[in-house]
Design a protein around this nucleic acid. Structure first.
Lengths: 149, 149
DNA sequence: CTGAATCCTGAGTAATTTAGTATGGATTTG
DNA sequence: CAAATCCATACTAAATTACTCAGGATTCAG
């Protein structure tokens, strides 16, 4: 068994691109819509793939769109009010290290372990899940811009 | 695009099973080797798949094996000295949310974003990576047993 | 009022990864 | 020697990922 290409606790390209694209929109907040082609080329993301990502972000209420010539996308809220956790959850679903401790998880979903209370590992997964969510929810797009120097 | 089956920041079955199996061995520390079949059946894990996991754990120095009848596996160190982060890294490689901030990553690997310094997202990934590793490195098998009541 | 720039929608797909299975060999104890 | 165990390599079906493809709808400029 090779361990090449095995990467734990990873985001998919959707989440990674999505956060980068949202940061791009944050930098242009209040300057009118930014066309998708602009974001795609400047962030080096496939145009069509980014289109799919923006569909999810729009449906999730994180961005607004303007159609037609001079159209484009813009943040639906000020950068201070959009956190990275929101972006990732909209693009990838609930954040959890294993199914057991996922939102819908518990025991209803496709949990790989049928025990609940007497599972020694469960508490680790819960703590990890909460750590990750808390950190991502505390970090806003504004924070990301402020870190830049 | 459906969001079914999309789960961010997940462990693979290898990591999840591995931690459960190690916890099982921890409960039997200093009581002689535990046969793989015992762990597999009691943890509801495929025998052959768990065999592959134990190969990695042994090569990683986390467990020792005894061959033959009455053989089996046991922790190579006391539960206090084995952390969850070690287990996951042995089974799944370096823990990082995106390639850019992975061990080998930086810019050498297959990073999806070629910018390094001026990437607004980078700092978020670094903080998230450090948060996750720190939490998993602070949690030992002994801690997991102590949490049980 | 037409053409270009944009957003919008759904289907399709090649490559990779995952979570195993299959097969058989090596070692030790009773 | 037989059974229980570990050890090693190769294979594979299903799912997922990261897109591409094809075309439609809307708006603005000239």
């Amino acid at each position: 068994m090779d361990l090449q290409g095995v990467k734990p606790v990873r985001l998919s390209a959707r989440g990674e691109y999505g956060v980068r694209a949202m940061a791009h929109l944050a930098l242009n907040y209040n300057e009118g819509p930014v066309p998708l082609s602009k974001v795609a080329s400047s962030e080096n993301i496939s145009h069509h793939f980014l289109e799919q990502i923006f569909v999810l972000l729009r449906r999730g209420g994180l961005i607004k769109s303007v159609r037609g010539v001079k159209g484009g996308y813009m943040l639906a809220l000020p950068p201070r009010e959009v956190c990275v956790g929101d972006i990732i959850r909209v693009l990838e679903g609930p954040i959890a290290p294993v199914e057991c401790v996922s939102e819908n998880g518990g025991n209803g979903g496709s949990c790989r372990c049928e025990r609940t209370d007497d599972c020694l590992a469960r508490h680790v997964w819960e703590k990890l899940r909460d750590h990750i969510n808390e950190m991502l929810d505390k970090t806003t797009l504004q924070d990301m811009m402020d870190w830049k120097q």
